[in-house]
Simulated assay, not measured.
Amino acid sequence: MKTKVVVGLLLALLLLYLVLLGQRGVVLITDGTPAGAVLGVGVLILPVVVVWAIARELAFGVRTEKMAHQLEREGRLPPDDLPRNEAGRIDRDAADAAFERYRAETEAAPEDFGSWFRLACAYDVAGDRKRARAAMRRAGALHKASTT
C-alpha cells in the first residue's frame, strides 16, 4: 500500500509539472516568432508522450498485480525459496536451475499465462529484465484472452 501512495504522490507532482510545461508551450507558441512556435509545439508534444508512457507502465503494473493475485489464490505463484548469499543475492546456480524448470514448463504449456508469469519471474531473478518484461507481456496477453 505504501508503494501505491508514493506512486500517487509522484504522479500528482508529475501532473503539476506537465501542466506548467504545457503553459510554457502555449506561451512559446503565442510569442509570434517561428522559432518560438516550433519550440512551443515540441514542448506541448513532450507531455503527451510522457503521459502515454506512464499510462502504459501503470497498466502493465496493474495487469501484473492482477495475475499475481490470481496465481496466489490458485497456489501457482512461484515461491521465493531460492538460496541467497550473505548480501541477499540469489545463488546463480539455483536461479539457473529454476529458470530451466520454468522454461520447460512454458514450452509444455505455451497457452497458460501462469507458466509465462513464472518464466518472467525466472528471467527477472536471472537478471534478464528485457526478456522478463517480454514474458510478462505475453502472460498479460494470455490472461486477458482467458478472462474475456
Rank of each mutant, 00 (worst) to 15 (best):
A141H: 06
V125A: 08
R118Q: 10
V48F: 00
M67Q: 00
L142N: 01
P78E: 00
K66Y: 06
T147P: 13
R63Q: 15
L82S: 01
A94W: 04
V6A: 13
L18Y: 04
I90A: 02
V51G: 04
A145K: 13
S146W: 06
Y123D: 04
S115V: 09
V41N: 07
F117S: 00
L10R: 08
P47V: 04
A97E: 09
F113S: 15
P78Y: 04
R63I: 01
Q23D: 14
I54D: 06
I45Y: 05
S115P: 03
K2P: 14
E74M: 03
R24I: 07
V5T: 15
A109S: 07
K2G: 13
D96I: 08
I90H: 07
D124I: 01
A95C: 03
L28Q: 02
S146F: 02
T106S: 06
L15T: 15
R89N: 13
H143A: 12
K130Q: 14
D31F: 06
G127R: 07
A12Y: 00
L9R: 03
R118V: 02
A55C: 06
L9G: 14
A141S: 01
R84I: 04
P79E: 13
A139D: 01
L58M: 09
K4E: 08
Q70D: 13
A145N: 07
L58R: 11
D128V: 11
L58N: 14
